[in-house]
Design a protein around this nucleic acid. Sequence first.
DNA 1: CCGGCGGTATTGGTCAGACCAATTACCCCT
DNA 2: AGGGGTAATTGGTCTGACCAATACCGCCGG
Lengths: 172, 172
Amino acid sequence: MEKKRNAFEMNISAIKTMIEQDGFVPGDRIPSERELAERLSISRPSVREALRTLAYLGIIETRHGGGSFLLNRDDHTYIQIIAQFLVTGDSKFEDLAGTLRLLEQSVFVQRTDWSILEAYIDSDAAFREALISTVDNDLFERIWRQVNAFYQSFGQGELYTRAEREAFLKRS
Amino acid sequence: MEKKRNAFEMNISAIKTMIEQDGFVPGDRIPSERELAERLSISRPSVREALRTLAYLGIIETRHGGGSFLLNRDDHTYIQIIAQFLVTGDSKFEDLAGTLRLLEQSVFVQRTDWSILEAYIDSDAAFREALISTVDNDLFERIWRQVNAFYQSFGQGELYTRAEREAFLKRS
DNA sequence: CCGGCGGTATTGGTCAGACCAATTACCCCT
DNA sequence: AGGGGTAATTGGTCTGACCAATACCGCCGG
């Protein structure tokens, strides 16, 4: 038994278990907050604390006056949540630039033909954006986008000089 | 202009912002629920719904009678928590492995001498950990660690075969 | 002077109830 | 049978209260 968890986490587990046992599938409306409170013998505020967390994670969606609905797994927002908390206010600026370079240069080892990037050689931002988009990886792209957004919030200029960009393409 | 998010998410944002603006660091005790409610002009139940979510994600820790404390970022457990809800195989898993490979291979273009990694050739996990540690970049390391934790939570085995690891060193 | 001790204040945990707002369900009338 | 309007349902928020665990602080005795 994994007891000892606080009541709040047990409530989340209980709700999750109930959803499974009742055979709800994505799109279904789950019982109302008041009914959940009654069936689990806890108060509605406690139910709400659990449901709000589930909603924040993207497990369910609540509609004012409508009810709470199970979401598809593909709609889960866990990736956004990860990205949101990865990059926070105290990241050192030099780490930001360094991380961006690491992320972007890792893409270059993936393929050999970079002629498609030639159209963007004039713009540092567009060049790097196009570079990342060649990787078909949602998580990687979100991470890069978060880091890049933070980098740009510092109002810095180009990450690479034009000569550096041209050197990248030379490797093709 | 941010779109109009619901009040709940704004409360989480407001609390996070207040934590940053007040300069709290991991280990600090953040204001009490009642004080937060007053300063943000919302009710305590609303504060609690936000705090419970932050606690569930591992951003903060609450002690009955003690208060709420900021946790170290590395202690965050939201990765494992979220993974708990992904019961079935998910297409996003490939993104995880792919992102890890991108992150790690980006390190290899940074230097030429990898003899220091030979001691870890037998263990996939130790090998990759040592690889990342050669990069002196807090943010990059944090990103890798979170993605890797998520990957491991799926209970997957080695990311590289031994032959692949040896091939890496051959490039030296 | 100091350290242990106990009372008190603070803080989180939970609950009941109320009211509003948005949505849904339903029934009645045409 | 269809449409419209009203009532019921449901989520959103707040007030206030009480309990439980912890922290705080001053008192007392060594």
